[in-house]
Design a protein around this nucleic acid. Structure first.
Lengths: 296, 296
DNA sequence: ATGAAAGCGCTAACAG
DNA sequence: CTGTTAGCGCTTTCAT
């Protein structure tokens, strides 16, 4: 933070008025002489004065900063989310401060502390894959810091949540595969700890059940460490005595891993094996979205 | 910024010591009784005390915030860049504040003002397509705010710049097409105002020249409004009396538009028409990267 | 309509 | 080793 920037004191000195007068002029108070006001504004512009938001924040106990914590910024879903958030917050006069947990529980705790220290006016949080204990999030509530969870939420937390309808999305995706004629559908599932994994798994299970298809236990693979494992697990599925004829993946990164693995092993998609994933098209700021599925 | 958070004053009161003692304990000063220090630290942890960075910033004239301005957050290049920046800054104890110009000159000016107001310790900026006048950037220099331009830089500005070697990248990409046997190579170029457009164009021209291929003026199309126009221009190229047999695009979004347009019109790639784009693989924090090209 | 002064939370002389 | 004090830039009573 640069020393030697113009302050209201500098303006006051140059105009021979008090700093309170300058302050009033700057924030458009009406209990001020119009001429004084104009003089202040003109000088401010001329000297490229920019208000010190840090000082304002301290004085007003309000930073106008929204904190965002996402598992990974460079993920098309989250970067699109951040972009959307940035758009609306800036329109409302807020800035965003962004942290990424890199899917690490401990990093997420640090992120939360950082944003508390920055005294952000509110936090938007999408929890990491690793996170099971959410005490660090309860701290936010105990400090009365407004909080909204999005996409990766946690059931036990009593806060506003913005989520896609994972169950419906999974259900539809699997129905799509079934209607395309596939009958032995495997599922590369996400970590059991995540609610969205369980919701998608349930959608998968119910779709099979409602179409009277059997559930094969070894068709369901939880990929805890995510993308690294997905390729290997895909191979395992293919090498089963009775391999699946379609795969429904938990998310994009798994779909991509599976896709490459399939192609590398010479499978024709969708002729020899089907593959679907879920994705969200709408702005994430609308509650309860309907995900769509893509076929490869 | 939440009222009612714990302050060093609260800690001091509860421990019957002065606030300076608490302050000293918290920042690990050595001129303090070890026992007092422990007592302070324990109480701080117990009460979930988190230092007020706003107050620290004001006092220290340093915010530990790095401002970032990009044309578009939800762009894979920029989101990857942001992610990388966030990673290293957080490691160094800095936070990032992100703005997007949406490729608008006026928004970029606002972004700069915002970051000045936030008294960020430095700014990383990638200028918008629309930006020609850079007076708002010179203001940063006049205020001694550290500045680094990246990717979308501006020649006339005397600051550190982090860029990919656009000329080389374009040159290589076009050579690749030529070596693949294409001879009538068109170029969907970027806005003339951007240095990187001109560099890539020059690489394209030199590659043709060095292979004794003629330059056809109507094979070079500047797409000023970017992706919207790219599809239409691709079509125009295909409808020329003597259409090109390959297209070299300025960037990804154009490549995608061109790709879809070609496919929609039944062209086989790369059999009937070639297409290359440039992309950057390495971290953007290294100066002068060598771009690679992909063939579709 | 304007000024003087207090205080937001913290740090850093300065004094004991 | 500890406490007192001033001040970062700003807003907001409270006087005038």
């Amino acid at each position: 933070m640069n020393k030697g920037q113009i302050t209201i004191r500098d303006l006051a000195l140059k105009l021979n008025v008090s700093i309170s007068t300058v302050s009033r002029a700057l924030r458009g108070s009406n209990e001020i002489n119009p001429e004084t006001k104009i003089a202040v504004l003109e000088l401010a512009k001329k000297l490229h004065y920019e208000p010190n938001l840090i000082a304002q924040s301290l004085r007003n106990s309000k930073t106008n900063i929204i904190g965002i914590i996402v598992p990974e910024i460079a993920n098309s879903f989250f970067s699109a989310a951040i972009s959307g958030i940035q758009e609306v917050t800036s329109f409302e006069g807020y800035n965003v401060m962004i942290c990424q947990s890199n899917e690490k529980y401990l990093t997420e705790i640090e992120n939360v502390k950082t944003l508390i220290s920055c005294r952000v006016d509110g936090i938007l949080l999408s929890i990491s894959h690793e996170t099971e204990n959410v005490d660090h999030i309860r701290v936010l509530q105990s400090k009365n810091i407004p909080l909204v969870l999005f996409d990766r939420v946690h059931e036990s937390l009593d806060v506003s949540k913005v989520v896609v309808d994972d169950y419906q999305g999974a259900y539809k995706a699997v129905c799509h595969l079934i209607q395309s004629g596939y009958t032995r559908i495997a599922h590369l599932a996400g970590p059991k700890t995540l609610l969205i994994s369980r919701d998608r798994l349930q959608g998968y299970l119910d779709a099979l059940k409602n179409h009277n298809l059997p559930v094969e236990d070894n068709y369901i693979v939880h990929c805890n460490t995510l993308k690294e494992v997905a390729a290997a697990e895909t191979l395992n599925l293919l090498n089963l005595p009775n391999p699946p004829d379609a795969i429904f993946t938990f998310d994009d990164s798994m779909a991509i891993k599976a896709l490459f693995t399939l192609k590398k092993n010479g499978y024709k998609i969708p002729r020899e094996i089907g593959l679907v994933r879920i994705y969200v098209t709408d702005s994430i700021l609308v509650t309860s979205l309907s995900p769509t599925c893509t076929e490869f």
